[in-house]
Amino acid sequence: MLDATIPVGVSGEDLDIRSDGAVLRGRLVRPMGTQRAALVLHGATGAPARYYRGFAEWAARERDLAVLTYDYRDFGASLRGPMRASRATLADWGRLDQGAALAALARIYPDTPLWVLGHSVGGLWMGWHPAMGRVSRAITIGAGLTHVSDHPWRYQWKARVFWSPPVRALARVAGYLPGGLVGLGADLPRGVYEDWRRWCTTRGWHLSDVGRTLPLPDPARVTARLRMIAVADDDLVPPDAVWRARALYPEAMKEQKVLRPGDFGLERIGHIPPFTRRNAVLWPAILD
């Protein structure tokens, strides 16, 4: 379905993506001319696909990229029923839904170079995605194997409250995590919160479940040129946690980059805000 509300210079359409029994709602934005690559954007936990809309339109218009954004199962525009009935997990989002979105883009563009951009959790699962073998360039931002003790003290108390037994009990009673009550904003399926909680309070993050509830990834799939971006003032995923994730992709050609607020005339950047329109000054540094 064509979208007539997007800016001049790009075209867009909504589409459905099948993912292991779930249907994900996606949006593909294309440049008006020939695209030089097709990029899938795997979003952060709790960040709806609409949040990335400005970035996707800019990348299509200014960088000639076709950009696919989408919402994970039972979240955002992909929510099909009451969230309390959802059985979705964060592992489903990372392993299945991200893999399905990349595979869908590969089918749409069989002869176009494929790129991946992963924000936060969106950058930690590439070894599970079969279509990564076709990807020539990958970028992660704020994607790290974070333990609760990694947060600076100014944020650590908030994180420990977020993972505390009362918040876990709230999610159990409600049947989902009411994001507005705990400062997250977006509601999350209970299984997503449970995975997230367990991994952020366990060394090694999701690797702690590999060989138990998670199958083995295949790091050899990820041979793309990989730019790993950390944000200097990211309290949620500090740079040291981002560099720790290098071990996930031993075969990739890796580049490390740090975004510092002062370099862009900003007072702060943080974890989620790099993709807001007011921080568009960051976008060339992420993509170019």
Score class of each variant (00 low, 15 high):
L2R: 13
T5V: 04
I6S: 08
I6C: 01
G9Q: 09
E13S: 08
D14E: 15
S19W: 06
A22N: 12
R25N: 15
M32Q: 15
G33Q: 11
T34P: 14
R36N: 11
A37L: 00
A47P: 07
R50W: 13
F55L: 09
F55E: 05
F55A: 10
A56T: 00
R61P: 01
E62M: 04
A66W: 01
L68R: 00
R73C: 09
L79T: 07
R84F: 07
S86L: 09
A88Q: 07
A91C: 10
R95N: 05
D97F: 00
A101F: 05
A104N: 10
L105M: 03
L114W: 14
H119Y: 01
P130W: 11
A131S: 14
G142A: 02
T146A: 14
H147S: 04
V148A: 14
D150E: 02
D150P: 03
P152A: 00
W163Q: 11
V173T: 10
A174E: 12
G175P: 09
L177D: 12
L184I: 00
G185M: 09
D187G: 05
L188M: 08
P189L: 07
R197M: 14
T202S: 06
W205C: 02
L207K: 01
G211P: 07
P215L: 06
L216V: 10
D218T: 00
A220Y: 10
R221V: 08
T223C: 12
A224W: 10
M228G: 05
V231C: 03
V231K: 02
L236G: 05
R246S: 13
A247C: 09
A247T: 14
Y249S: 12
E251A: 11
V258N: 06
V258I: 11
F275I: 02
N279T: 06
V281M: 02
A285T: 11
I286H: 14
